[in-house]
Design a protein around this nucleic acid. Sequence first.
RNA 1: GCCGAGGUGGCGGAAUCGGUAGACGCAGCGGAUUCAAAAUCCGCCGCCGCAAGGUGUAAGGGUUCGAGUCCCUUCCUCGGCACCA
Length: 683
Amino acid sequence: IPMYYMKITAYAEELLSELDKLPGWPEQVRLMQKNWIGKSTGVRFAFPFELDGKAEKLWVFTTRADTIMGVTFCAVAAEHPLATRAAENNPELAAFIEECKKGGVAEADLATMEKKGMPTGIFVEHPLTGEKVEVWVGNYVLMGYGEGAVMAVPAHDERDFAFAKKYGLAIKQVIAAEGQEFSLDGWQEWYGDKTRGSCVNSGKYDGLAYDAAVDAIAADLAAKGLGEKKVQFRLRDWGISRQRYWGCPIPIIHCPTCGDVPVPDEQLPVVLPENVEITGAGSPLARMPEFYETTCPQCGGKAKRETDTMDTFVESSWYFLRYACTDNATAMVDERVAYWCKGGIDQYIGGIEHAILHLLYSRFFTKLMRDVGLIGDLGEPFANLLTQGMVVAPTFYRELDGGKKQWINPADVDVVTDERGRPTGATLRADGQPVVIGGTEKMSKSKNNGVDPQALIDQYGADTARLFIMFASPPDQSLEWSDAGVEGAFRFLRRLWKTVYDHVQAGLVAACTGNNALSSAQADLRRKLHQTLGKVADDYGRRKQFNTAIAAVMELLNAYDKCDLADAAGRALAQEVLESAVLMLFPIVPHIGQALYDELKPGQDAGKQAFPKADPAALVQSEIELVVQVNGKHRGSIRVAADADKAAIEAAALASEGAVKFMEGKPAKKVVVVPGRLVNIVA
RNA sequence: GCCGAGGUGGCGGAAUCGGUAGACGCAGCGGAUUCAAAAUCCGCCGCCGCAAGGUGUAAGGGUUCGAGUCCCUUCCUCGGCACCA
């Protein structure tokens, strides 16, 4: 049981509400955190009772106070104090409680677990009606949430319903919905739907819908001093004690006379010993008197240093702030954090598996450090978050005697494909004998499907390996590893290299800066260049989708190859295109990028250049192509002046070959013109 | 069970705001070059069809001039959560 906690629940409300102020975070992660924090609004109230001659109260929490008149019993968790007391003179109940505490912790069992319970023999009083209500111990009640006890309304809670049916407890309908018949035969969805229906069999509350009923009942409970509205969070406090070596020591000294005393500032940090013996059983620190024997900072007497260490999530919750002040040997962080991390880290990248723990702890720590004055007004650590997908790879195996599978690394396998390229079989390269093709799964040691990128780097170079990985899929998607595509990345870089070399061979020229001297085809290429510049900047900066950025540069190079650039204007344009292409790819292929840039601009450093900007003037077109559709089907295209009005476009479209053919002489019912895109003629 | 993301050619994927589905690349096919091969270059490449054309984004329905994209129903895959009162 952990002894030290971080009071993360104190920040539950802020951690939840500020999720809405993180536009740079994936929606999915924000939602997962929202569900994890789990805010629910309800009523906390008490059932009074008398036990051993003393007046007491059984507190419960409910989001369905409107069904309070339907309570037919109460249920408490096995760990609840009332259960413990009831078990004192009831061995059968004690045995049941023991059974509950033992089993049912395994997550998979919980969903299918049968509802079980046992009466305590204790009766409490309904706070509004004064009726006697029996208290049961139920294995479906959690001690760690709310009060560890619930009011049971079998008619309107699915779990209570199942429980009541099993043990023959009363079921009292107190909510009715129009057009719906309540029956004890089986659970129906609408019984528990608070958005439908209103109170019945509930005395003065009859006819009230959910909100009004909850308000009225909460007010009545409050008037009796037995309850009030309450916000409840699912989030628990963070137990940070670990009985292990790896972690920051908890700086507390236990003194028999002074109690738990913090290690004084001047003795910090408490440093882990290095001569440890790691046995795998318990913390090595607890077996090292030279570590834990110390004196009390207050009274100077013999004392024991804490041997628990902190959860390693503690340090990972603020390490990134430390980058702003790594040379400070006397403090955790200093005022430089407020400057460098203002508004949050610009871009944080991590696996989606950190969505809840690390990313929530970090947000908590940032708020905590802000509130103790360490980092100015920085309240959220990460302005933009990118969660990357997993890398998966095909698996191969052979069935050994006894059905055990021997997993074979993809690197040792040759895959045979049919004439369409579909895999039909695979053989082990070492012996040429067949192996079974398994599924495609996350790379793991157990499936032996990990691929070391070093082999690619050795064969093709780091730039090719990087280009291939970036081109294969967007970073937030999982990537299926197959080195088939590497050839394509390699070919592209070789082609770029040759293109630059051929251009430079003919002599150096200055890059084109305007469209004046260009032929129409050259102007088209220059427009393509500046469109590409805009797209790549957007893909890198906003969309974080590098595969399409690379594809756009490939398209640009394809267009370059098709364009006649032999004249002087063409040479200047070639220079502009190639300089830009190299700079666009430079973040992904820095080695080749620098080598080529040095060819194009001798002595210049590609990494020090500004990212080239799209020139709006290069994007202007005098004539544009529009698609012609008839009844939404693509039937041809027309070329019109870029500034053509709607009437002229309609006329041109109606006169086009495709329109004439498919209209078959009928008049158009309607013509839809989508500016810059298409014309749809409705027959 | 609940929440979330997704399902597009032989494959990875593109289509950013409802507007030409399949960009870009891999694999494949045909050709050029070569003594031959590698490399390179040119062309083809969803499916049916000789073609005209039809059809096609998991399945079915709907909204719309127009749907991969929006709505409803169903199926499947992946990820997260797990009786949260």
